[in-house]
């Protein structure tokens, strides 16, 4: 999954899509995921990072990450090769 190249992500979790004018807020974990996506990390790398950084289990990460990625898709914040 690739985030839109020109997506603006601030350290506060404020996300701005300059092509549509849409803006969003994400919580610190969402911001963490977006930053990893922006850095070009793969889904597996992000999964691993979340399991290492937060007190959680594999199933929860799997489910929440799936929901989060789906939402990014629906909000048209991603681009596909």
């Amino acid at each position: 999954m690739n985030l839109l190249k020109n997506l603006a992500i601030s350290d506060t979790g404020f996300v701005f899509n300059p092509a549509t004018g849409d803006s969003f807020s994400v919580n610190p974990i969402g911001l963490d995921i977006l930053k990893h996506l922006k850095d070009g990390k793969s889904e597996n790398e992000i999964r691993k990072h979340l399991l290492e950084s937060y007190q959680t289990d594999k199933e929860t990460v799997e489910k929440d990450l799936y929901d989060f990625f789906k939402m990014l898709d629906q909000l048209r914040l991603t681009e596909h090769d």
Binding site: N6, P18, A19, T20, G21
Partner: peptide, 21 residues
């Protein structure tokens, strides 16, 4: 370029944001 982010009942922009388009 701009997109209206808040529109009045007359369809006029009450708020808007510049776009990269």
């Amino acid at each position: 370029p701009m997109r209206k982010t808040y529109i009045t009942d007359k369809g006029k922009a009450w708020a808007g944001v510049t776009l990269e388009d």
